[in-house]
Write a protein that binds this DNA or RNA. Structure first.
Lengths: 181, 181
DNA sequence: TTGCGAATACTAATAGCATTAGTTTAATTC
DNA sequence: GAATTAAACTAATGCTATTAGTATTCGCAA
């Protein structure tokens, strides 16, 4: 058969798009192979099985998020920056639900690359908080709370957990405003 | 073969325990059948396939949570009640991770039984907030925020998302305190 | 240009899971 | 005690992931 010239990056990117369309749970090597017009065993040349693909997706998600958050924080200050970062988070979950969902899986113990990528998305948060004069225990509490709240909000929203979609933006901003010291 | 006398409640309860042990993703009809010392097609007498089992688990989780939250709120007032309810939430995620995880799946559109069960867990929350003089938009924002924050915190904690486990309780209580109006 | 090695695709085969159909057997009911 | 129903079983199908082995194509070096 003629070569398709698939690269790992393309493969993972396509898998992410597919996950957005059909849901991360329904993403299988079979459907990905169909999409790429290839037989499923061929995927093993690029990725270490389904588990490997999932890890690549997590990595892509973490890096994508880190970039969006950094861009959102750029040239903004204080609470404005926090709100923009929160919005970036939430927008990713709305625009790329499959990709966002792959953030959830816990990194394997000792997987520093994965842990690093996740931490990179949090760095701007540290910056803004210290700029707001928030240090020590306060900063730790605030970061944990903001992460939890934003993540939980995005998940509940994606799962249709909120009854009415009215004023969801207001609620989200109210929440963030409450959690900055 | 002699009958095993399995009831649907037992089956679902056992499935929940199994999910706690091996993780919800790894819970299959096969392993459940092994645990119950039965062949997997026999499970179809009690439950509508894997999808049906998952729905039953979600229902059990929602009801369990509703009971725990109601008990936590009992005879408590104001912020004390909110903290106790939050703790109940978080404890469930720690003690029954598999069961807790099955809360996440979105209810099928039109599945009122599932939606009702989920709402029942939130009722005490409404009570406490109105008792705190929180009404209208404020109440809506607060409820959404508290749900998001508590849920997000429980998930991140379960996934090992927080680096150090030190003072996690303090952070959790700090967060709740911030979100009550 | 030719030839060689590595990368990438393929086919074939295996194993596990969910699911359906049809059968048997035990319990319940009349 | 006979008939009905419920709950177990076996057998078979189809889908997925995965491995092994094979062939083809691309890039590079002689």
């Amino acid at each position: 058969m003629s070569r398709k010239g698939i690269t790992r990056e393309q493969l993972v990117a396509e898998a992410a798009l597919l996950a957005d369309e059909v849901g991360l749970e329904k993403l299988s090597l079979s459907v990905l192979a169909d999409r790429l017009e290839v037989r499923s065993p061929s995927l093993y040349n690029h990725v270490d099985g389904l588990a490997g693909l999932r890890r690549e997706l997590s990595l892509l998600a973490a890096n994508t998020l880190a970039n969006l958050v950094a861009k959102a924080a750029h040239r903004r200050k204080g609470k404005n920056a926090l709100v923009a970062m929160g919005d970036a988070f939430r927008n990713l979950s709305k625009n790329r639900p499959g990709l966002y969902a792959s953030l959830i899986q816990a990194p394997a113990p000792g997987d520093t690359e994965m842990a690093d990528a996740a931490n990179r998305a949090l760095e701007p948060l540290f910056g803004v908080l210290s700029e707001l004069g928030c240090e020590g225990d306060q900063a730790i509490h605030a970061i944990r709370s903001l992460r939890s709240a934003v993540h939980g909000f995005a998940l509940l929203e994606a799962a249709g957990g909120f009854g009415l979609p009215t004023d969801l933006d207001k609620s989200f901003h109210w929440m963030i405003g409450r959690l900055v010291p």
